[in-house]
């Protein structure tokens, strides 16, 4: 455990090395969250509620979605793609640790930093200018934390699975780009899925994406009944198991076909 914790710490130290990067990302995220909140304010108009969700709940949903997005930023896919392309994956493999362990703990280090650097300022800006993003109750908050942790695992496993493609395909960035947009659109992170047509909602309930954003956010604003919450978090957990099995299965074969670029 000790080496992995230190890997996370090193990641935090490196994240703090570039100050301009930090400041610019805060500014960009705050602008983005303010813009999407104004979109919802305009969309609601004089209405107090739409499809059973009040305007304030919707704004809380939006602010929390952006906050969650900072915390769910995964580096694993780009990390693998870049190190395969540059050949530095060789150096990762020379360490007596699991290479996916390195990638996971680097990402966990990034989350800790993103929480302080991005999530906290975003929540403050949201609370000051839009709406205080308070959870429905303390119980809802705790369930949200658990569900968000599950989201992290699903999101990380999907990212790692996509990242593993780059052991086979050298240029993977277009694929990663497509994946990013798919998650943004189909997970309810920008527009909640209850605004989508019924047939699409049915299709999406069989895919893992909605369990990344929509589920924890819906739990947070308290629009799900206890039964719905339990059922959906159960499905969320099943997705972790499914993706986890797939991950370990593919991981076994993947390093065997490793391409190390350059002399």
């Amino acid at each position: 455990m000790r080496p992995y914790l230190y890997i996370a710490k090193v990641r935090m130290l490196s994240a703090l090395a570039y100050r301009f990067d930090v400041l610019s990302s805060i500014v960009i995220q705050c602008l983005a969250v303010i813009a999407s909140c104004f979109f919802w304010i305009a969309a609601y108009g004089n209405q107090q509620a739409a499809l059973g969700v009040t305007r304030d709940q919707m704004l809380t949903y939006t602010v929390m979605s952006s906050t969650l997005a900072c915390l769910l930023t995964m580096n694993v896919e780009n990390r693998i793609a870049a190190s395969v392309q540059k050949g530095s994956v060789a150096l990762d493999l020379l360490k007596p640790v699991n290479i996916f362990g390195i990638y996971l703990w680097e990402d966990i280090g990034s989350v800790a930093i993103a929480f302080l650097q991005n999530a906290v300022p975003l929540l403050l800006i949201g609370a000051l200018f839009i709406v205080a993003p308070v959870p429905a109750s303390a119980a809802h908050f705790l369930l949200f934390i658990l569900s968000a942790a599950f989201s992290y695992m699903i999101n990380w496993l999907i990212a790692a699975l996509f990242g593993m493609w780059s052991f086979r395909i050298v240029r993977i960035f277009p694929l990663l780009c497509m994946k990013g947009h798919m998650i943004r659109l189909l997970s309810g992170s920008v527009i909640p899925l209850w605004f989508f047509p019924q047939w699409l909602q049915t299709v999406l309930s069989f895919l893992p994406f909605r369990y990344i954003y929509q589920l924890p956010l819906s739990v947070y604003i308290g629009i799900l009944s206890p039964r719905e919450t339990a059922a959906q978090m159960g499905i969320q957990f099943i997705w972790i198991l499914l993706l986890g099995c797939l991950f370990f299965e593919i991981k076994k074969g993947v390093t065997r076909h490793l391409l190390v670029q350059g002399g």
Binding site: I7, V10, L13, G87, L94
Partner: peptide
């Protein structure tokens, strides 16, 4: 690899963003 040291002249295993000593500390843990 626990019993192996490898140095590639063309690439470095040191962490670009850290001080040299911090890279050593990381290796000490790993």
């Amino acid at each position: 690899v626990q019993n192996l040291g490898v140095v590639f002249g063309q690439r470095s295993q040191l962490n670009w963003d850290l001080r040299l000593g911090e890279s050593f500390e990381l290796l000490k843990r790993i």
